[in-house]
Design a protein around this nucleic acid. Structure first.
Lengths: 145, 145
DNA sequence: TTCTAATTTAGAATTATTTTTATTTGAGAA
DNA sequence: TTCTCAAATAAAAATAATTCTAAATTAGAA
């Protein structure tokens, strides 16, 4: 974390205690939190923190390329501090978002009609599945019924 | 369209004039409209139509598997009457959503760690690019400046 | 034609997110 | 260390998408 603070100090990003708390919370966090998750967490240490601060900070970090906004849950945005190439797998039962560390870029050749029409700049791949815990719950339900 | 009406009449889906108008609007429509787009369109013929009707109808159709909810725009849901395997390409300038008719299912082999953890049920692939019109606009801007 | 459960409507409520505004503060300059 | 001010904060209001509610209407079965 020391490193992180030093890094931001150099980068036109005023380090306030609230921002440091948000950075700390996001650093290495693979839970893909929403703005509300972050707000709830930061509120524990800074009871007066406002949503505006959380959203402002997330926007600033997004613009710096330090975090990604994850569009995968139709109800709300999630945030991911892992900006390296990876994908997500969402449990269709509990909506938990997991990481899939793999680069599929070579596998996705677009049809020539599309390449003619678009200057392509990237892609998103998400997977859907049922996680181990939810599979277990399903088995237990089956036994009961 | 006659066919469509006959099809729904058989399927536990009460056909009201509003619903027929929504079905007509969605049939073969590749514009990936939002609930608001649909509402605005239907209002022309049925000025008293409410958002609740649009959302109710979309939910019913989604549950029947007749349309897909497209989670690609972080601000709102889009709907797609094409339920066959295909993908989307979003223009990063104008946010227009285009179709990519191609099946990549063979190309996406999940890592074994994931296969151990999840019973996989599907995937979503989206592409990002700049569409022809926006490329043109960019060129014209460059000339002006 | 009648009946009834499903659907529609208008409007209020809810939820996520953004904006506004007045006040406070981090951090560089003196 | 203190001063200064652009940037950040907090509280609250605004906005936008979606859902809920309760009363009125209606599609389609009988």
């Amino acid at each position: 974390m020391k490193k992180i603070i030093a890094k931001y100090r150099k980068r036109d990003f005023k380090l306030t205690p609230q921002r440091i708390a948000i950075l700390r919370y996001l650093d290495g966090n693979t839970s893909h939190p929403t703005a509300d998750d972050i707000f709830t967490q930061i509120k524990k240490a800074y009871p007066t923190v406002s949503f505006a601060t959380v959203y402002n900070t997330l926007l600033a970090l997004k613009e710096k390329g330090e975090i990604l906004e994850v569009t995968i849950d139709p109800e709300k945005k999630h945030y991911d501090s892992n900006v390296t190439t990876h994908h997500h797998i969402i449990c269709t039962e509990c909506n938990k978002i997991g990481d899939v560390i793999k680069d599929y870029s070579d596998a996705l050749r677009l049809p020539s009609e599309i390449l003619k029409e678009y200057k392509t700049v990237g892609n998103h791949i998400d997977f859907y599945g049922i996680c181990k815990e939810c599979q277990k719950e399903r088995r237990e339900l089956k036994i009961k019924n």
